[in-house]
Amino acid sequence: MRIAFERLRVDVPGHRALDDVDGVVESGSVTAVIGPSGAGKSSLLNVIAGLVRPDAGRVRFDGDDVTASPPERRRLGVVFQDLRLFDFLSGRDNVAFAPRVAGLSADEQRRRVDDALALVRADAFAARPARVLSGGERQRIALARAIAMAPRALLLDEPFAALDAELRRRLRDELRALIRTLGATALLVTHDRDDAFALASRFIVLRDGRVEQAGDAATLYGTPASAFVATLLGEATLLPIEERRDGKARVRGEWIEATGNGARVLLRPEALALADAGSDGGWPATIVDARFAGGSWRVVARLADATELVVHALHMPSDASVIVRPPARAHSVD
């Protein structure tokens, strides 16, 4: 199912949570809404789920205007950030909730529940009361509950917020596989860029209630529209452009082919390289910090004017004095 929202506006006492927000989630794909706290992500999710009525704008499912439709009828599987499991029910009964209220036969209910539990691998503990389950188990039950509905699309709000790093990674991979198996359309709300990269193909970047940029992941990473998007999606160093000529920009004496019209070039750690001091070209620098990140080194190099760059290097240089080589081409932002 294709989800589209246009010109959404939501006002809460004190400020505007969403301001003229547009976006699309294509059928069968996963879009991540990413942004810092307070950017309006949860408001957007609530509007699409039907829990909040927008003050302006529309929501469309496959072209049909559902803005006035109540949540009960939207058939979206929502996994809330605080999970909202019914603690007075067992895990199983939680999962059976939607099939049950839909009036399905007992057999059909059981089938849906069993399938959903199997998909999230929660069969082992589903019979226990929801309130005694661990964080990871509760997360799985919450997911199964949404799936058992056979929803038209999934809405996931910070799905792994309360979990530790290891569990987070594991569940993330499982969720990715699950979504692919189901061929589901999904909207993921998160502030964690690793979650977004792992699960989504398209991004919508929200800032202070507005869409800063939207597009596929690689585009936003490589050619962000602003410094905000650039730093949101990954580590970056921004250096001012001194002069432009013929599509090239001079940065600290080095000429780089620069796309975009910004005043600063965007230098990603993996695009920079280290060379021994004395090699020609590049910027002289001193290494001030280096740590091994399991596969490459994360090196912080300080230039002559105290600006610091982050570089991902495959080998740790032997000397503290190095040359940092910029890439041949880089994007520019303001």
Partner: peptide, 17 residues
């Protein structure tokens, strides 16, 4: 204490009238 409001919202999304 049982956060009834959010729970009812969740029930709505699950299709409960």
């Amino acid at each position: 204490a049982s956060r009834l409001g959010p729970l009812l919202d969740a029930a709505r999304t699950l299709g409960a009238g």
